[in-house]
């Protein structure tokens, strides 16, 4: 059936969006199976219904009807068969779902920032992609460029409309939940304020694909679109290095923050403890704290900066770090995280 491709395609078909990742192909397989199974069950149920209605239509007021209260064998069968079918579909879904949720080690990382009502993409070299406005004052969605056949991991955050001001200002301008949705890749992930969420994909079809915001977020929710352009690796490298590439890689910006915001006074980069623990080797380590063991990931670092007292590192219980809420921006936190990632 041509409208049912599990083969890759950069174009939508009558009933399906493009199939641009391996996951999308697997999705289509399961969807197709369940659709066929549903169709057969549905036709079976409706056919039985119509058949009975026609056959046993009331002929006279004195019609005698059968007195059948139950039939154990039949009832067992029609409970058991759906049960098996449901479990089968559940397991199949689980397999694909865990592939969606298992992040490849070597993925290219891109930061995604959602706000009312726009997306912003920040590459590690500092290059930023934002939306623009055309001659007719119409919004032109931002286009994130990604390499063909390489896994890409998005680290996503939801921020307020004016992200460069400190967090405590403008309390009515709130960050809300958005959802990053690429139909052609069959992936979706909510972007939640106050934490980082992540998503990955590996596009196998060159082309341009829509990104929608799938979680209702207010007036221009419907217009909160973006595009993903999949190009060859060479083309991607060229693009990344060219046109308005970031003045400063994220990690470098992080190093500046480290010096300017006085982190340097309490944290070393060479492994020696100071007032606070060293940052060397911090990324991905299991940290012992008074609240238990935590992996030092994006959320952990973010929380350590904004609410240092939430979890106190073992050995530093009595040392104090000032909370940075209100004096550090989300962009700076992101940069510090990228900086810490480089301190292997």
């Amino acid at each position: 059936m041509i409208w049912w491709p599990s083969v890759a395609s950069a174009q939508p078909t009558t009933f399906m969006p493009p199939v641009a990742t391996a996951i999308a192909g697997q999705y289509n397989g399961l969807y197709g199976f369940l659709l066929a199974a549903s169709f057969i069950s549905f036709v079976g149920v409706v056919a039985a219904m119509i058949y009975f209605v026609v056959k046993y239509r009331r002929r006279s007021e004195n019609d005698k009807t059968a007195y059948i209260t139950h039939n154990h064998a039949l009832e067992f069968m029609w409970s058991f068969i759906p049960f098996v079918l449901f479990m089968f579909v559940f397991s199949w879904g689980w397999i694909i779902y865990s592939r969606m949720r298992t992040f490849p080690e070597d993925a290219l990382e891109v930061h995604v920032v959602a706000k009312k009502w726009d997306w912003r993409f920040i590459y590690k070299n500092g290059k930023e992609v934002t939306s623009s406005v055309d001659a007719n004052n119409k919004r032109v969605p931002p286009t994130m460029v990604v390499p063909l056949g390489r896994p890409v991991k998005l680290i996503m955050a939801s921020e307020r409309q004016v992200p460069s001001t400190p967090l405590s200002e403008a309390p009515t301008d709130r960050a809300v939940i958005h959802s990053f949705y690429v139909p052609a890749f069959r992936v979706k992930q909510d972007v939640v304020p106050g934490r980082y969420t992540a998503l990955w994909f590996q596009a196998d079809q060159p082309g341009e694909y829509w990104v929608f915001c799938a979680e209702y977020c207010g007036t221009s929710h419907f217009d909160m679109t973006a595009k993903i352009k999949v190009v060859s690796v060479d083309e991607f490298e060229n693009w990344l290095a060219s046109e308005g590439a970031g003045e400063l890689p994220l990690a470098e910006l992080g190093r500046q923050v480290y010096a300017q915001k006085a982190c340097i006074g309490c944290h070393t980069l060479d492994g020696r403890p100071s007032v606070g623990p060293t940052w060397k080797g911090l990324w991905g380590r299991k940290v012992q704290t008074d609240k238990g063991e935590f992996v030092a990931d994006e959320d952990y670092i973010r929380e350590s900066i904004l609410e240092p007292n939430a979890k106190k590192v073992k050995g530093f219980e009595n040392a104090v770090m000032p909370p940075y809420t209100g004096t550090i921006t989300e962009d700076e936190i992101r940069a510090v995280i990228e900086f810490i990632k480089t301190l292997k």
Partner: peptide, 24 residues
């Protein structure tokens, strides 16, 4: 008739991998 369709499509949405795409 209608509830059968409503029911079977519920199975689609209960299936994790399908719901990721179909949700919202």
């Amino acid at each position: 008739f209608l509830f059968t369709i409503g029911g079977v499509t519920g199975i689609f949405l209960a299936t994790t991998a399908l719901d990721v795409h179909l949700h919202d």
